[in-house]
């Protein structure tokens, strides 16, 4: 399975103005199986935009995202949503949670919402354990710190064993120890065959990556290690 961006351009209209700007310009990128790609760049350079386009959440102005040859944006909202649920795991930049559910229920939500088979709860608990917050499984997300919420998000993104993992600054609120934990987990997932794209500002990220890219003014360039 491969996820490939072909000549992606994303143009945003400025609110209240007739002008617009390009977050991405004719960008090509292939996310290959078993590969962890680090994406860096200044704020507003188009990193998150590219990640969201790969996630099927933001339709490009032009270009295609091909999944095994099929443009995912040619699918309707229903099939695209199913694809997002089954193949893609997203760790968002912000903290997102359903506050009426427990931490464990939040982690398991992508699975139970779609009636997935298997012992979801055990898997969810294992992920929480792996990320060092299993004791918070029954807590409400509102009781968690920023770092704990970040780890909960990571567990939720991985609950369905996605083939593609898209992480937008997944270590933003974390200390060095937990930053290492997250990168090791993402590296492990890549080694197990997942395609992993990590948007980050971490200096040490390259040591977990197969390649590192930099995006500037909507254009990608490779950074040699």
């Amino acid at each position: 399975m491969s996820l490939e961006a072909q000549s992606i351009t994303k143009e945003y209209k400025r609110k209240g103005k007739k002008s617009s700007f390009f977050a991405l310009k004719n960008t090509d990128l292939v996310l290959a199986d078993g590969e962890l790609t680090v994406l860096k760049g200044r704020s507003g350079s188009g990193k998150s935009t590219l990640l969201n386009i790969f996630a099927g959440l933001s339709k490009p102005t032009s270009g295609k995202i091909l999944l095994d040859g099929t443009d995912i944006y040619s699918l309707g909202d229903g099939p695209l949503s199913v694809l997002r649920n089954t193949l893609i795991g997203v760790i968002p930049q912000e903290h997102f949670a359903i506050h009426t559910l427990s931490v464990l229920q939040n982690v398991c939500l992508p699975s139970v919402l779609f009636h997935k088979d298997g012992d979801v709860e055990s898997r969810g608990f294992e992920l929480l354990k792996l990320l060092g917050i299993s004791e918070l499984a029954g807590s409400s997300p509102s009781e968690l710190s920023g770092g704990e919420l970040r780890r909960m998000s990571a567990a939720r993104a991985l609950i369905n064993n996605p083939r593609v993992i898209l992480a937008d600054e997944p270590t933003g609120d974390l200390d060095d120890e937990n930053t290492e934990l997250i990168f090791e987990l993402l590296r492990k997932k890549a080694c197990e065959g997942a395609s992993v794209l990590v948007v980050t500002h971490e200096n040490d990220a390259e040591k977990y990556a197969d390649r590192s890219l930099k995006i500037q003014n909507g254009t990608l360039e490779y950074i040699p290690f």
């Binding site: 997203v90 359903i98 919402l113 939720r156």
Partner: peptide, 16 residues
Amino acid sequence: IKEFALLRMIGVSRKR
């Protein structure tokens, strides 16, 4: 609104 964005992110369709 953040809850609804989260649901969209994890694969909930507009209809759902």
